[in-house]
């Protein structure tokens, strides 16, 4: 059960702090939890954790492919490995290890990729994953999660700890807007209807959720009643929620912090075209590389700002 915050405000801490706190809680309660990192522990606030759990916090050094293999192996001994590195290195660089040692071999790993899309900001193109979910989406049995805020991230971390299989969670390390009240819980695989509406469906995820909620307000002032759906499980995707909402609104806009090719928009459009082919549009990174810049700059450059969302929604409604 979730509850939306009354007013959207930035969380009073960085997401990495919430991450390390939850990892600490889990490792304290469950001695099978291990954490592997590739020389980016300090970057995600896990230095204290490493001191507290010296045998279960494993710094592999800068060797992502090896880390995934080691984690897969350790899971066969009954351990519950969480791995972390930046999103591009967590996915692109280790895709065959995830595919073979992870999914195909049916081992259990929980992979965290940080700095989702534009949240990589000044680390620039080499470090800005806008394809991570797309790459992993084509591997069977991989569950793909993008938490909306830290409340959700921590809840999902606690849940996946005890689940078998290969999980990838793309996160931000920075301050993010709080969307859900503390204590909210979430069901993996189930979409969340954040706002009910009848004129258009806007489906979104991650850091775009806050933008979409702001766009929803702006649209409301213009007499447009948008339904807002948050899909945090990109795979397996909640087809029923998509179809039911599309039936009601007949227009679907998807807003994502990812390449629009093979991202959330693609996944949604696959469901729509096979079930209820309504008009749709994908807003996100328009098949281009990342670059250095602030989050605002990047969103504007990629055409996924609040203003872009409002414009796209209105255009879509006019095309109905």
């Amino acid at each position: 059960m979730f509850k939306l915050v009354k007013k959207i405000l930035p969380e009073p801490f960085e997401a990495k702090t919430a991450f390390s706190k939850t990892m600490d809680e889990m490792a304290s309660a469950d001695e099978n939890v291990i954490y592997l990192d590739c020389d980016l522990m300090a970057s995600i606030d896990m230095t204290e954790f490493a001191k507290k759990f010296p045998t279960r916090a494993i710094n592999c050094g800068i060797q992502e492919a090896n880390m995934i293999g080691v984690a897969c192996g350790a899971s066969l001994i009954g351990l519950k490995p969480f791995t972390h590195t930046f999103g591009p290195f967590a996915t692109r660089r280790v895709i065959d290890q995830i595919y073979i040692s992870g999914a195909y071999g049916k081992t259990n790993i929980k992979m965290i990729g940080s700095d989702a899309g534009v949240t990589a900001m000044y680390n620039g193109g080499t470090h800005m994953p806008v394809e991570d979910m797309g790459l992993l989406r084509t591997i069977p049995d991989v569950t793909l999660l993008e938490p909306t805020d830290s409340v959700m991230m921590c809840d999902l971390l606690r849940q996946i700890k005890d689940l078998d299989g290969v999980y990838y969670m793309r996160v931000t390390r920075k301050v993010t807007d709080q969307i859900f009240e503390e204590g909210s819980t979430f069901e993996i695989g189930k979409a969340l209807t954040l706002k009910e509406g009848s004129d258009i469906t806007i489906i979104t995820s991650g850091c775009c959720t806050s933008d979409v909620l702001h766009a929803h307000e702006e649209l409301a002032t213009q007499g447009i009643n948008a339904e807002v759906i948050n899909i945090f499980t990109w795979k397996p995707i909640d087809a029923e929620a998509i179809i039911n909402s599309a039936k009601k609104t007949n227009a679907v806009l998807i807003v994502e912090n990812h390449n629009i090719i093979n991202g959330l928009g693609s996944a949604v459009c696959e469901i729509l075209s096979e079930n209820i082919p309504v008009i749709s549009k994908r807003l996100g990174v328009p098949d281009r590389f990342g670059e250095v810049g602030s989050m605002e700059y990047l969103k504007e450059t990629f055409g996924m700002s609040i203003a872009d969302i409002v414009t796209a929604a209105k255009e879509l409604i006019n095309k109905k």
Binding site: Y122, N123, G124, G125, T126, H127, E291, V292, G293, S294, Y297
Partner: peptide
């Protein structure tokens, strides 16, 4: 923003 000198 738009620089020819990115971090990497």
């Amino acid at each position: 923003e738009g620089t020819i000198l990115p971090s990497h």
